[in-house]
Design a protein around this nucleic acid. Structure first.
Lengths: 347, 347
DNA sequence: TTGTAGGCGTTATCAC
DNA sequence: GTGATAACGCCTACAA
C-alpha cells in the first residue's frame, strides 16, 4: 500500500469545506448542493482519490474478503472451483484470499488462524486429506463465522455443504461398465477417510449389487495418493495376482485411471476390448489420451459459484440461516469415451 | 468478519488496567512487569483475543495483502506459479488476493482498480492476451506501487520482471529436433503480441539458421488460442498443403502440440518415425500421453517464489530499488520423450 | 511500570 | 446544506 494517497481530508482541504461534506458528496447523499457535489467529484478525480477499503472495513466491521482454503492449487478440479469462486466474488465486490494446505492438517489450522486475524467475512473450505477431526472448524463456526464446505464434507452437524453426488456418479460409471459387458470390475478407491471416497465406493458396491454381480473384496484397493504411479502399481498387482483377473477398472480419480492405462499398455492388454477403464473428475486430458478416457465429470466451476453465492447470501443476510439447505448436491455427468466402449455403441 | 470479537479494550476492562498496557504486554514490550504480562496473556487466551489486522493495516498503512493477477486460474502453468506465490507469501506473513482476467483487458483494468482501493501492498501480474498497451500499469507504478511482472513481460522501461528464457527453451527444442534428423520443422506460434511468443519464435528461427537450415515462412503459423482444436486444424492444413510437408512440429504450447498429435493420428502419420513433436510448458499430461510428449519445462513454482520474494523484499525495503535486477530469467529444461526420439538415443 | 491522548480514513449522529 | 465530533481497534509518543 502506497502512502501519499489522497484522502477525503485532502479533498476537503483543497476545497475548504469539511470532510464530512466531502464524504456525503461522494456518496450522493441527499441534502448536498449539486454545485458542491460537482466540485468534490472533480477534485476527487484530480487528486486521484480512492476510497480506503481498510478504513471502511474497520468502520463497518466487514472486510469484503473471503478466505478460500484448498488442499492444492495445482489440481485441475480445485483450480476450476477457485475459478468459479473468483468469478462470483468479484462480481459481488468481494476479494478472494487464497490459501493452500498442501494436504497438511497443521497448515490448515495455521491458515485458519491467520484468516481469523484478517477479519475475513467468511470461509470456503475443502479440507486436507490429513484432517480426520473437525474441532478447528467447529470452533470458528461457534464464533459465528460463516463457512461453506465444498467437495470434501466434514462430519459436523449443521455444516453447510456443496458437493457433487459422488454416489450417483460412481453408480452410473459402474453401471455403464456393466452394460458394456465387463464382469470383473475392480475399484481403486481414494483415501478412506474422505467421504467422497466412501460415497464413490458405495456407488460402486451398490451398482454391482443391483445388477446381481458379486462384490469381490480383493478387487477393491485403496489408492490414497491418487497418482498414476500408484494406480499403475496397484493395477499391475491385481492383473498379476487375481483370478479371474479384472476386466475393468473404476478409479476414484483420473490420474489413477491413467496409471491403469499405463499398466494395461505395459502388460499388453487392449483397451477397451480386454480391459475397460473409467476415471473420475473428467480432467482436461481425458480427451487427449488415446484411447479417450471415460470419466465422471464434476462441475467444479458450478460448485465454486454455488458455494460462493451461498456464502455471500449468508454474509449479507439475504437468507435466513434456518431457511438455507444444509447441503447442495450437484449432479455429475458421465462422459463416455473409447476407454470403456467395448460395444461401440454410439453415444 | 464476525463482531463480538474480543479487543484489547475488553482485556483491559476485565483486568482493570489501561488498554495501552495491554497492547504493550501482548507485544512483550520492555518495561512491563512479568506479572502484568502473564495476566494479560492469560486473559487474551481466555477471551479468545485475536489482533485485528484491519486496524493494524489502517494504522501502519500496510495491509500485508498482495494482489496476484493472472489470465486464468484453470491453467496448469499459472496454477503452479500461484502455488509458489502462495507458499512464500504465507511464509512471510502476507495474504494472497487472487484475481483472474480471463484474458480480458477490461477485467484486468477493473481488477487493478479494485486492488488499489484495497490498499494492496504490491502486485504480481501476468497480463492478458488482449493487453497491447500498458499505461494502466505505468499509472500504478508512477503512484509508487511495487509491481513484479511474471512470464508475460510488458514493454515498460524499468519494469521488474521474472521470466523464463523462452528463447533458449525454443532454441534447445528445435536444436534437439534437428539433431534427431528432422528437416522440415514447422512452428505453431503463440499470440504474436506476447513477448514470450516472439522469443520462442526467435529461438526457432535462430536454431534453424545456426544449423544452416532454411526458414520457410509458410511453415510458421500463428496459433493464438493455443487449444488442441486449433493446433490440430493448423497441423492438418500444413500436412495437406505444404510440399515438402513438415516432418516435425515445434508448438508454442503443449495443448497445441497435442492437437498436432491428433492430426498425425488422423492422417496416419507415425510419431516419432514420420513426424516429431515438441511442445512447451511440460504440463502434467505430457508423461501420460502415448507417445510421451517432449516438452520444454517452465519452472512455474520457482517463478512464483522468486517473484514473490522479490516483491516482498521491495515492500519491506530490504533491497534498494536501484540495486535490484531489472529482470530475473529462469532456465528452462527440455524433457525429451518419445514424441521426438526418432533416433532412440538413450536419455 | 502504567496511563492519556492523538491519529490512521471513514461514516453516522448530532447540531447549526 | 454544511460542519463538528465520536467511533471502529490499534499503536505510540508523552506524561505521570
Amino acid at each position: 500500500m502506497k502512502n501519499g494517497q489522497a484522502t477525503i481530508k485532502d479533498i476537503a482541504r483543497e476545497l475548504k469545506i469539511s470532510f464530512s461534506t466531502v464524504s456525503r458528496a461522494l456518496k450522493d447523499y441527499p441534502g448536498i448542493s449539486e454545485e458542491t457535489k460537482r466540485k468534490v467529484k472533480e477534485m476527487a478525480i484530480k487528486l486521484n482519490y480512492r476510497p480506503n477499503a481498510i478504513a471502511l472495513s474497520l468502520r463497518k466491521n466487514r472486510s469484503f474478503n473471503i478466505a478460500v482454503i484448498v488442499p492444492e492449487v495445482v489440481h485441475f478440479f480445485f483450480s476450476t472451483v477457485i475459478s468459479g469462486i473468483e468469478e462470483i466474488a468479484k462480481k459481488r465486490g468481494y476479494n478472494v484470499i487464497l490459501t493452500q494446505t498442501n494436504e497438511k492438517l497443521d497448515k490448515e489450522k495455521s491458515s485458519i488462524e491467520a484468516m481469523l486475524s484478517n477479519q475475513i467475512d467468511g470461509f470456503l473450505i475443502s479440507y486436507s486429506k490429513e484432517t480426520t477431526e473437525f474441532s478447528h472448524f467447529e470452533n470458528i463456526i461457534d464464533q459465528g463465522f460463516p463457512i461453506i464446505f465444498f467437495d470434501r464434507i466434514p462430519d459436523i452437524p449443521n455444516s453447510i455443504n456443496v458437493k457433487v453426488d459422488d454416489f450417483e456418479g460412481a453408480y452410473n460409471a459402474v453401471s455403464h461398465l456393466i452394460s458394456q459387458g465387463y464382469e470383473n470390475i475392480a475399484h481403486l478407491t481414494g483415501p478412506k477417510n474422505l467421504k467422497i471416497s466412501q460415497e464413490r465406493e458405495r456407488g460402486y458396491r451398490e451398482a454391482l449389487a443391483n445388477h446381481g454381480m458379486p462384490i469381490r473384496e480383493e478387487m477393491i484397493l485403496e489408492c490414497p495418493m491418487g497418482t498414476n504411479e500408484e494406480g499403475k502399481r496397484l493395477a499391475l498387482s491385481m492383473l498379476d495376482q487375481l483370478n479371474p483377473r479384472p476386466d475393468a477398472f473404476f478409479a476414484n480419480n483420473d490420474m489413477a485411471a491413467v496409471g491403469v492405462m499405463m499398466a494395461c499398455r505395459d502388460s499388453g492388454y487392449r483397451i477397451p476390448e480386454e480391459i475397460g477403464i473409467v476415471g473420475f473428475s473428467n480432467w482436461q486430458f481425458c480427451t487427449m489420451l488415446e484411447p479417450g478416457l471415460t470419466s465422471v465429470s464434476q462441475p467444479g466451476i458450478q460448485m465454486g459459484k454455488k458455494a460462493t453465492e451461498l456464502l455471500l447470501d449468508i454474509i449479507e443476510k439475504k437468507v435466513e440461516l434456518d431457511t438455507i439447505p444444509n447441503s447442495i448436491t450437484l449432479n455429475t455427468e458421465l462422459f463416455i469415451r473409447k476407454s470403456s466402449m467395448r460395444l461401440h455403441k454410439k453415444s
